[in-house]
Design a protein around this nucleic acid. Structure first.
Lengths: 235, 235
DNA sequence: CGTTTGGCGGTGGTCAGACCACTGGGTAGC
DNA sequence: GCTACCCAGTGGTCTGACCACCGCCAAACG
């Protein structure tokens, strides 16, 4: 009763996880070929593949055909993809509400900017670069939105927290569909873009001044207003 | 170049995701049998299984053998499991640092208690229940830690944000190993437990008083102190 | 007539084998 | 020395088979 028969694919998954934790496997390392893993662990190749598929979707490995250094399953560390897929699917399965996603994004991002404002000398080079690029008035809505995503991600990266970066990226990707749909319904795009630009500059300004609480409030209003704009048909 | 050959398992995954988003599939529904999905989508059964495996690990479906209502692949919504697995694996692959996980937990949880404090009349029944249960001085360290997890999760649930609940649960699960290892090294457990109890009561008290900023600060100190305790050999 | 029991069909779980597509490197030919 | 070709290794996929499990129903039994 207590001892589950241990699904074959879980054996593989557990083995790889423990190898990762013990340091046997690390970033950049190559996993053994599927056929070898199968015989080593005493399972079929299909079971190995099911486990590898999970790792691939979660962003832990990258698989490549052929031979040479780029072939095989290689340990990588791209959590954003997996996080995005997970959140997107759960959103699709109605486990998550869009409102909750937005609210969580606010929680994370307000913490990010508060941390940045409290930091001695945050590295805002990338942030400034994207901020400048967004001032180009000839940007199409789609381009603007893409830069917007870059800007918010750059802020998270400046804070130096990989977990937050992955989560924020995933949250944003998950509701990308909603945003894209809403953008097309905005009557006066130039006006909306101008306001967003102004808010971005203001947030970065507050970070530079060390106004943690002010930056937190500004980001909260910014994100809330952003989604209010793209989800309401009437600008 | 632009048109990837579309891996067979991705066809299945995409199809299920779009069916979820279109409402064709919803929570509680049963997926078609693997063999049927395979013929319908024109792929092999192995490819279908790889896609289903991903969904299962991500907490989207539950598979059962046999016949009847409990058999087959059924859409469920248990994001915690998938979130936990994702974070745990990424942590094992050294994509994430423990410090970042803790910091993100602080960001989310401080937002949770701030929201609760700002709420008109938060439903803290579960929180109070767990809080009371933790006052039992005969609890073993393991039991205490388990209740602690329940308490923090109850706070997140009281805030009513499913995304935050899942993320907090996942973050905590991901570093459960570290905590369990650290607990055993605490010299004066009773003293540490007493302090944690006091901090818990204080946080809930601040929420009741509507002291959002105070609760935020208290939670931050609490979590930071918690991990400082379990990660340092000398109490 | 009620109860028990046995088989049957459908489902996931797993494996073995085969074949294809792709890649890199080595080798034969120029 | 250079080029073109072939080969071995790898993932990607399909097929077919078998097993374990479970609910349902009919046949056998009391």
């Amino acid at each position: 009763m207590t001892d589950a028969p241990a699904k074959a694919w879980r054996i593989v998954l557990d083995r790889i996880e423990s190898d990762l934790m013990s340091g046997e496997l690390g970033p950049g390392d190559r996993l053994p070929p599927e056929r070898e893993l199968a015989t080593t662990l005493g399972v079929g190749r299909s079971s190995v593949r099911e486990a590898l598929r999970v790792l691939e979707v979660m962003g832990l490995i990258r698989t490549g055909t052929g031979s040479g250094p780029t072939a095989g399953a290689i340990i990588i560390g791209t959590p954003s993809g997996g996080m995005s897929a997970l959140l997107r699917l759960q959103l699709a399965a109605q486990s998550f509400a869009v409102e909750d996603v937005v609210q969580t994004r606010i929680a994370l991002e307000s913490a990010v900017v508060a941390d940045l404002a409290a930091a001695e000398s945050p590295d805002l080079v990338d942030v400034q670069r994207v901020l400048g690029a967004m001032d180009d008035p000839s940007l199409s809505p789609a381009e603007f939105v893409a830069f917007d995503a870059q800007l918010h991600l750059a802020l998270a990266e400046a804070a130096g927290n990989g977990v937050t970066v992955a989560m924020m990226g995933g949250l944003r990707d998950a509701i990308e569909g909603y945003v894209a749909r809403g953008i097309r319904r905005i009557a006066d795009w130039d006006d909306a873009a101008a306001r967003l630009r102004h808010e971005h500059h203001r947030i970065v300004e507050l970070i530079g001044e060390g106004e943690a609480d002010g930056a937190r409030a500004a980001v909260t209003d910014h994100i809330r207003g952003y989604y209010a704009t793209v989800t309401s048909p009437t600008e």
